[in-house]
């Protein structure tokens, strides 16, 4: 499988990465080189093989259903590019 220019633009949009029109061809070449490289996986017979979901078998631990963290708003906001002191600020989402 290989990607065309329209697919590169679609992937860039899904990944929320702005791609200039003059970058598309170059990116297309790179992505296709990687896709050509991974193509060989298709030759592996995986009949009856379960996909890996956990590399080491372990039971998920459960903790008590209690509040154990929080109340650190200032810490959470400390590195934000824009806040009003209580909330993150973003460009207007709803008109």
């Amino acid at each position: 499988m290989s990607v065309d220019a329209a697919t590169v633009r679609r992937i860039a949009h899904l990944a929320r990465i702005a791609v200039a029109e003059d970058e598309v061809e170059h990116l297309q070449g790179e992505l296709n080189a990687i896709l050509a490289f991974v193509e060989q996986l298709g030759e592996v017979d995986v009949t009856g093989v379960e996909p890996m979901t956990s590399v080491t078998p372990m039971a998920m631990k459960q903790r008590d259903d209690v509040v154990s963290d929080g109340g650190i708003r200032d810490d959470v906001l400390r590195n934000a590019p824009a806040t009003d002191g209580q909330f993150f600020l973003v460009p207007k989402v709803v008109e």
């Binding site: 949009h13 929320r16 990465i17 702005a18 959470v76 590195n79 934000a80 590019p81 824009a82 993150f88 973003v90 460009p91 207007k92 989402v93």
Partner: peptide, 17 residues
Amino acid sequence: VRYGLRIPGGDVSDMYQ
């Protein structure tokens, strides 16, 4: 939004991209 670099954009999606 929460940390690091922000490049302003026309709307929120443009800002992300």
